[in-house]
């Protein structure tokens, strides 16, 4: 296999807070190939956004990427790259789209100006040229009447339009990688589908790699080819999308799948994984999912599971790989029904 576009090895990003060291990302390794769409899925607080921000080295104090972490991208180690070269990569070779289209745009500048700014920084072109490029890129994202829209301020646009502006901003330099951190969570359902379609379409058209971060397995199924499941600062499972949905291995992944609301099914109650994510300042020793896991026995308590190879490019951080027969004897149900689900 040719060397991947992005290769992360043993990424550790810790926050030195007053209540202790929060090991938000704790030894994460994965690759993204050129033109590939990879998904990261996991519950709130498992370290998805911190992983994304670490790639762009945008972790603010008290957070820090620990020594020994490596992020190789286009032949450079982003962890040790000088600041100036890192700025050359941001918005240019790697760009990012956030969840909050509302607040991610500066309220006092026109949206066209904010998109054009990226080209002014990286393409070394003037106001007029960069404005024209911004309008072109806004058109690519399907914004109607882009010339007029470009002259408007963020508050004059709807949420979906603002997200398109952010996509244009991410796209204008034709980067090698776009990180989309929950790009549709803040939008309503029909707009969500449109934005996801747009991302998939642009990815196909320009061959850009996409790292799609979400807590929604539905989004993963629709947009990505490979998926990484994160739990408590670690990768707990990784496989191709078809493999993962066909044969989920890690009990956490199984739990996530069972708690997915099924569209079309008349679901009265929403299934949830019992218990809560442990605190990042104090991950449990042994298996971090142990306290919520229906299969737990003494081995997970003693020993932190490594990522086991469970076949077909599929890895899982679960001792069931060693003692698969235990899967037949859960002590309790994997998910509980709780609360009335959305209709």
């Amino acid at each position: 296999m040719a060397s991947p576009l992005l290769s992360i090895r043993d990424l550790r990003t810790y926050f030195y807070t007053e209540s202790g060291v929060a090991k938000a990302v704790d030894g994460v390794s994965f690759d993204i190939g050129a033109g590939e769409t990879v998904g990261i899925v996991g519950e709130s607080g498992c370290g998805k956004s911190v992983t994304a921000l670490s790639i762009l080295r945008l972790i603010q104090p008290p957070g820090r990427i620990e020594a020994g972490s490596r992020i190789d991208f286009e032949g450079k180690d982003l962890v040790t790259l000088p600041d100036e070269e890192m700025r050359n990569i941001r918005g240019n070779r790697i760009s990012m789209i956030f969840q909050e289209p509302m607040s991610a745009l500066n309220p006092v500048f026109t949206v066209g100006d904010q998109v054009a700014e990226v080209a002014r920084i990286h393409a070394g072109i003037g106001r007029k040229k960069s404005w024209e490029l911004a309008v072109e890129t806004l058109a690519l994202t399907g914004i109607p009447a882009p010339e007029e829209r470009a002259k408007q301020y963020p508050h004059q646009l709807s949420g979906g339009m603002r997200q398109r502006v952010l996509i244009a901003m991410a796209l204008i330099m034709k980067p090698a990688l776009i990180i989309a951190d929950e790009p549709t969570t803040a939008l309503d359902v029909t707009i969500q589908a449109q934005i996801l379609d747009l991302l998939v379409h642009l990815q196909k058209e320009f061959g850009t790699s996409i790292l799609m971060i979400t807590h929604d397995l539905g989004v993963i199924a629709e947009t990505t080819s490979r998926v990484i499941v994160m739990y408590a600062g670690e990768i707990v499972e990784e496989a191709s999308v078809t493999e993962l949905f066909a044969r989920p291995h890690h009990p956490y992944t199984e739990g996530l799948m069972h708690s997915m609301p099924h569209i079309g099914h008349d679901q009265e109650r929403l299934n949830v994984i019992p218990g809560t994510v442990p605190s990042p300042t104090n991950w449990p020793h042994g298996c971090r999912f142990r306290e919520r896991c229906p299969y737990s026995w003494d081995l997970p308590e003693r020993e932190h599971p490594p990522l086991y190879d469970v076949g077909a490019g599929h890895t899982s951080r679960c001792h069931l790989a060693r003692e698969p027969q235990r899967r037949n004897h859960p002590h309790e149900p994997l998910v509980v029904q709780e609360g009335v689900g959305a209709a």
């Binding site: 918005g91 991610a104 500066n106 700014e117 920084i121």
Partner: peptide, 14 residues
Amino acid sequence: PADYIRTARLKGLT
């Protein structure tokens, strides 16, 4: 701490 400042950092501004 505003999100648009993070966006500005993302663009590669100093």
